[in-house]
Design a protein around this nucleic acid. Sequence first.
DNA 1: AAATCGTGGTT
DNA 2: TAACCAAGATT
Length: 366
Amino acid sequence: MKEQPLKYLETIEREDFQKDLISWFSREQRNLPWRRDRDPYKVWVSEIMLQQTRVDTVIPYFNRFLEKFPTLDALALAEEDEVLKAWEGLGYYSRVRNLQSAVKEVHEQYGGIVPDTPKEISSLKGVGPYTAGAILSIAYGKPEPAVDGNVMRVFSRILSIWLDIAKPSSRKVFEEAVRALISKENPSYFNQALMELGALICTPTSPSCLLCPVREHCRAFDEGVQEELPVKSKKKAARKLNMAAAVIFTEDDRVVIHKRPGTGLLANLWEFPNFEVSTSRSGRKQLEERLEADYKVDASLKAGVITKIQHVFSHIIWDIEVYAGSVESSALNETELIAVTEQELEKYAFPVSHQKIWKETKLIKN
DNA sequence: AAATCGTGGTT
DNA sequence: TAACCAAGATT
């Protein structure tokens, strides 16, 4: 016998639930820049930025991004380096490369109009099940589920669903719940209200049940188990990597940088030359060897470590020793390394770890 | 299914 | 402070 995760679904008074939820959202929703209109392009940009990212972090990025790329066509025609620069510091950079790729597709294949069918919109790069549902419901008023972490948390409590929400297979169960309960009159507010509720009231720890507009519909509150839900397995710890980075100046006081590969971690961002190193030997020696082996560049580095920087990713921790050095600018010809002025550095998108490297180097240099 | 892919804020 | 968390998608 299989446990029925949606055994309480039939007990929800659908019309009452919708009304309580939507009227609360109508009263209490935050005034956010992407809620000023329903422009599918703006909704799209906001949804991509908000993936795994807090509202307060996104707001200034969203405003700057829309200033720089006000329309879908403007983004489609922009240079990728400029787009990455606008994303600098937001993280998960493949989001914005996929976004621009998809926007180009809409520009060329759909006449610049974001498609409004699940099949077409889901085929766009970077648009998964959540984002497809969010755009379809918020921009086009279609009754499609948009199941994110908030929605899984809210419904795990309301319907007392004890599935592990960290498992990919769980999402479809929550989508089924949303399909059964979503308002056909206002799917946009219904979906947004679930997320707003998760963000403001039905929080991961210490949910404010006494302020909750749908408390009377909540099975977990009824049973006093709201703090036990949702069930979420933990992911394994990040692994540490020892790195060494070199801030290398040319005789005319330019700085040597390198563009990362187009796939993988921090794809297409710029960086100071750096390598994984062994702790058993001098980081300086290993750097010089790798600069020669990988880039055919004969640079000379100073002996001491300038500074140590730690940078934590989701799945990796970089411990970086930073060295300074110099090179003849003519030695960089025909290599993957380029030398730019300090002023020009500002135009290149760097990961935060390398922003730290430059900041610390400048502090010590001056 | 489990890893990969960033960063900053909170507990 | 280490762990956890935040409007996920891709491989």
